[in-house]
């Protein structure tokens, strides 16, 4: 059912509760998204101040995760939601967790940025960071939009994008590994880039998780642990 009609309950307070969950989650999404942009900019343009900012925002994200979790618990206890309402609360709780983990990964990138600034920049890998960074950022935007609009097609797109990111990540790994073999003195600095790439790739995975939660929320389908093709098939079948 694409139409979730969240504002149609007999109880207006229940409408307000659910809208509040949604708003809080999207606010948190906005914060985490900014963290990701800042972390990638910080490492690609060697900006330690920006990296520090990412670390500061992380506390705020953590606090929001806890608050939103409490609010989900409250709605479950007070309203005993069913059907789409139940899926809404569960999806918010799960997306909340994925967003927080994305924040953690952005924090790792920021720490690498600070480290590279202090110990000299890496000879390679910035192009890949910028590229994968922008792919992953797009995924996060799409995942959050698919939630905001209950847009299943967009959610499926995120799953496609994730495969692309995985491929780009693998090819970057190959290239950087080759470079390290040619110039072993660069290993420790290139490793910092590799870890950052790994963190970005993980952010992509979390965005794909969010897309799965959106499909669950809107369609009631559990599409975890299946291929993208199978996911598309199930989604189309349920229309």
């Amino acid at each position: 059912m694409d139409n979730l009609n969240l504002d149609q309950h007999i109880s207006r307070q229940f409408n307000a509760d659910l809208e509040e969950l949604k708003t809080q989650l999207l606010e948190m999404g906005g914060l985490v998204e900014q963290q990701i942009i800042d972390a990638v900019t910080a490492i690609t343009s060697a900006d330690s101040d920006l990296a520090e900012k990412v670390l500061v925002v992380e506390d705020e994200v953590d606090n929001r995760e806890v608050t939103l979790d409490e609010n989900c618990t409250m709605v479950l206890a007070r309203r005993q939601p069913a059907a789409s309402d139940l899926r809404m609360v569960l999806a918010v709780a799960k997306i909340n967790r994925d967003l927080e983990r994305m924040g953690d990964e952005a924090q790792k990138v920021a720490k690498m940025a600070i480290h590279l600034n202090e110990h000299g920049e890496a000879p390679r890998g910035y192009v890949e960071l910028r590229h994968i960074g922008s792919l992953v950022h797009q995924m996060v935007i799409m995942a959050l939009d698919s939630f905001a609009r209950f847009d299943v097609d967009l959610a499926v797109k995120v799953a496609h994008e994730d495969k692309k990111v995985d491929q780009e990540y693998k090819s970057a790994m190959r290239e950087l590994a080759t470079y390290m073999m040619e110039d072993p003195r660069s290993i420790s600095r290139v490793l910092n880039i590799i870890w950052s790439l790994r963190a970005l790739e993980r952010i992509g995975d979390h965005a794909a998780n969010i897309a799965e939660h959106v499909i669950y929320l809107v369609k009631g389908l559990d599409v975890r642990h299946i291929s993208v093709k199978e996911m598309e098939r199930q989604v189309n079948e349920s229309d």
């Binding site: 708003t23 999207l26 606010e27 999404g29 906005g30 914060l31 998204e33 900014q34 942009i37 990638v40 900019t41 690609t44 910028r130 960074g133 922008s134 950022h137 797009q138 996060v140 935007i141 799409m142 959050l144 939009d145 905001a148 609009r149």
Partner: peptide, 12 residues
Amino acid sequence: LDKIPASSSEPA
């Protein structure tokens, strides 16, 4: 990164 389209915090 600064050429990336508008941020998704907008729908929020």
